[in-house]
Simulated scan of single mutants.
Amino acid sequence: MRLVSTLAALLLSVPAFADEFTPALEAYMNDEISDWANDPAIVAAIKAQNDAHAGLSQDQIEEMDQEWRANVGDPSTPLLAAVLNHPVSDDLRARVEASMGAMTEVFVMDEHGLNVAASDVTSDMWQGDEAKFQQTYGNGAGSVHISEVELDESTQRYQGQISVTIVDPDSGNAIGAITVGVDAESLL
């Protein structure tokens, strides 16, 4: 507990301290995430949801996000259950478990920034208005976004997020993105 308090005090008192985690997050991405981020099951799940959501308007996306936010406390509701019970979500939970505390969460997004699969409930469904999506999917293949370390609303842990564009291996086009939350303590 003392280490968490010390880490929290440092993060809150010196904003530039968060940048000290960037090299460690980059190394974690290269060592632990890059090998499986474009897993065929993840790619297939994104492509299927992109097909299913091809005609969504921005209003419909925002309605889905509002419904998600209103039901965060009840993961059995149809919208949340569809994401959390997706077979890829089981794989993501297994990866979080296997990381022995290093990963706090993993979620996959479609071309709109909507959750496709997630290891845990996220605070919202639509990530499309956030840097984790805009600076990955929005910038195309090979794009990466590494956040500053901060207290995450969903996990209630100090974490950095590593987000990577997911690419269709057949076309080379961006089809979605993945975000991996990494516990800041695990980087020390």
Rank of each mutant, 00 (worst) to 15 (best):
A118I: 04
E150S: 14
V149F: 11
N173A: 10
V121A: 14
S186C: 02
G142T: 11
S5C: 01
F107R: 01
G55N: 15
Q159K: 12
A52N: 12
V121Y: 06
S99R: 07
S163L: 04
D120P: 00
D51T: 14
I42P: 08
V4S: 05
E97F: 05
E32N: 13
R69P: 02
N30G: 06
V144T: 12
W126Y: 15
R69C: 07
V43R: 10
G101H: 07
L92V: 00
N38W: 06
S34F: 10
A117R: 09
L25F: 04
D91H: 02
D110T: 04
P78D: 11
A41F: 07
S171T: 15
D168G: 03
M109S: 06
Y158K: 10
D110E: 07
G113S: 05
M29R: 12
V121K: 03
A37K: 14
D120Q: 09
E148F: 07
E185K: 11
N115G: 11
D129L: 03
Q135H: 13
A9E: 09
T6E: 12
A117Y: 10
F17P: 00
V108D: 01
M100D: 12
P169I: 02
D39Q: 12
D124E: 12
E32A: 12
A27D: 11
L187G: 04
G101Q: 06
I61S: 06
S163V: 06
A18W: 01
A118Q: 06
L79S: 04
V43C: 14
P40G: 05
S57P: 08
N115K: 10
V4W: 04
D74G: 03
N139E: 13
W36Y: 08
D35T: 06
I178Q: 00
F133T: 02
R93E: 00
T104G: 11
H86A: 02
A81Y: 02
S76E: 05
L79K: 02
E63N: 09
V88Q: 01
S119M: 09
A54I: 06
L188H: 00
E63A: 15
P15N: 03
S76V: 01
W36S: 12
V108G: 00
D110H: 10
G128Y: 03
F133K: 08
S89G: 04
P23C: 01
A98S: 01
G55V: 10
K132C: 03
G172R: 01
H53S: 15
L188S: 00
D120H: 13
T179N: 09
P87K: 00
S163P: 05
L114G: 06
A184L: 02
E148A: 13
E185C: 04
D110N: 15
F133C: 04
D91Q: 11
G142W: 07
D110M: 11
F21R: 02
R157I: 12
